[in-house]
Design a protein around this nucleic acid. Structure first.
Length: 498
RNA sequence: CGGGACGUAGCGCAGCCCGGUAGCGCACCUGAAUGGGGUUCAGGGGGUCGCGGGUUCAAAUCCCGCCGUCCCGACCA
């Protein structure tokens, strides 16, 4: 029976392991609607903590929140040709506004209520937002216009997976309008940097940043930047994107402004987004065979305190001590597990599967010795799982220990990524052996041709994740394309992805 | 839309081949003892066996049809 409670091992079946960790960690649950997800309170709190951090950064960089409609007139989508082509195949469409009794006793849409123009449920909001921007912008003095929206969107994907690809998901989409190409370019780079900083410093999830190849560019964008993280099965996860839209949308939505010299010009737009998918990335970056591992800065509960007692009179004393320990940790998100009907061991397992960074145990023996038992969710090889420390030391050192653990998780993830990255690969055979074997990030030269990219995708299911930014590039300039051998125009990162 | 599997209690499953009182584990409820790594014992509640039809004295079990779910592909800004 103990076996039943164990998780599927990470290395045995990664998908099953991931699902179990998410479900049993109580982040989310399946919903009656296929492909949709219920985010449970614990998972939602985690999302709120992420959201608050990002939102603060958006405000610090001059953005304001606003809200736009869920429904978009179908015709809006079709104004930008590439945009509609990219999204047309995964859309939910509203065509009627009433139901009536059908011939079989069930309900059918009332034909008389058919909408003249169908509404699509937003898969992203560029069209409706730039329609509004066009009304708001008259002069260069109205620019830049820096808006962000927290919302839900719907994309009717064929196959879904908790947090990583759900039919409906929560996200944030920033939309901006600028007077010049350069300003828009700076904006899209700036917001990519905001994402990267958040992912590394708060999620402990290192990312490779760079530009997308044309085939992976957002439909309607001039070019797209992205943050790519490596999961524990060595596949890539696109965790955030930032698009420079050029004047593609402003031309279609008539978003014009008067310049200083009185001339009329189309604005330059950017859009950028991150979603609840980041929660999945967090899970697949740190968690282990015992369950979730949540970095301290984002953990809904940072320290759980478990009182331990045999008899009722002991319980009162021990519980009071547990509460006083919690009170002595201001600014730390603590939780005292005062449930009387569970054994301590059962509680330990439960808080481990929920990824709480630190656990403090308080028993009669500890009170006597003025000590506490401290356990970190994950320790380095060879380190003790539990420490018996004087109470004062635990209280004084906890804030620093939380920060240490945060840093340690990032470092561990970075080391894992680097040991599964292959630089300077020149032979296609070697390339295939890596992708089809252990997997990982493979850095090679690329001629820039889409046919080489397509061939790799067909043969290995790997794609170009990014044309990496300078700091991620290997030292030598790539000599030739790993596929066709022609002169390379850039170094690229290949991987199988989610 | 192709290939494969599965549908029995909230969850995980056995039973089906060979038709005959619907079972097990976990979870849940009650009581007692327990409590420093998944406590133990005793008692209890919970089911149109995915749906429809057929064969039969009798169907979870055999036959036919349908529906649904999952996995692998295709798809995935």
């Amino acid at each position: 029976m103990a076996d039943e409670k164990k998780l599927t091992g990470r290395d045995e079946d990664y998908s099953a392991w991931y699902n179990e960790v998410v479900l049993r960690g109580e982040l989310a649950d399946y919903s009656p609607v296929r492909g949709c997800m219920v985010i449970r309170p614990y998972g939602y709190r985690l999302w709120e903590l992420m959201r608050d951090q990002l939102d603060r950064r958006f405000r610090e960089t001059g953005h304001q929140n606003a809200y736009f409609p869920l429904f978009i007139p179908q015709s809006f989508l079709s104004r930008e040709a590439e945009h509609v082509e990219g999204f047309a195949k995964e859309m939910a469409i509203v065509t009627h506004t009433r139901l009536k009794a059908g011939p079989d006793g069930g309900l059918v849409p009332d034909p008389e209520s058919r909408l003249e123009e169908p509404l699509v449920v937003r898969p992203t909001s560029e069209t409706i937002i730039y329609e509004m921007f066009a009304k708001w912008v008259q002069s260069y003095r109205d620019l830049p216009l820096l808006i962000n929206q927290w919302a839900n969107v719907v994309r009717w994907e064929m196959r879904t997976r908790l947090f990583l690809r759900t039919t409906e998901f929560l996200w944030q989409e920033g939309h901006t309008a600028h007077a010049t190409h350069q300003e828009a370019e700076e904006e899209s780079r700036r917001m990519l940097g905001v994402y990267r900083e958040f992912m590394e410093e708060w999620m402990g999830m290192p990312v490779v940043t760079g530009r997308k190849s044309p085939s992976e560019t957002f439909p309607g964008a001039d070019h797209t930047y992205a943050c790519e993280a490596m999961m524990q099965d060595n596949r890539a996860l696109q965790a955030g994107t930032s698009h420079h839209l050029g004047q593609n949308f402003s031309r279609q939505f008539n978003l014009k402004f008067a310049t200083e010299s009185g001339a009329e010009e189309y604005a330059y737009n950017t859009s950028w987004g991150t979603s609840t998918r980041m929660v999945g990335g967090l899970v697949m970056t740190h968690s282990d065979d015992a369950g979730l591992v949540i970095p301290p800065r984002l953990a809904p509960i940072q320290v759980v305190i478990v009182p331990i007692a045999r008899k009722d009179d002991e319980w009162q004393t021990v519980l009071e001590k547990a509460l006083s320990v919690a009170a002595a940790l201001p600014g730390v998100r603590t939780h005292v597990d005062d449930r009387r009907n569970l054994t301590p061991g059962a509680k330990f397992y439960e808080w481990e599967i929920r990824g709480v960074p630190f656990r403090i145990e308080v028993g009669p023996k500890d009170i006597e010795k003025q000590q506490l038992v401290l356990a970190r969710r994950v320790v380095a090889d060879g380190e003790a799982r539990k420490e018996f420390l004087p109470e004062a030391e635990v209280l004084n050192s906890l804030p620093a220990r939380l920060e240490d653990f945060q840093e340690w998780l990032l470092m561990r993830a970075r080391e894992r990524r680097e040991s599964n990255s292959y630089r300077g690969v020149t032979s296609y055979d070697e390339f295939r052996q890596i992708i089809e074997g252990p997997g990982g990030f493979v850095y090679t030269g690329w001629c820039g041709g889409s046919s080489c990219e397509e061939r790799v995708k067909e043969e290995t299911r790997a794609t170009i994740r990014v044309i990496p930014d300078e700091e991620f590039r290997s030292v030598e300039t790539p000599k030739g394309c790993v596929v066709c051998g022609q002169p390379a125009t850039a170094e690229v990162v290949w991987a199988r992805s989610y």
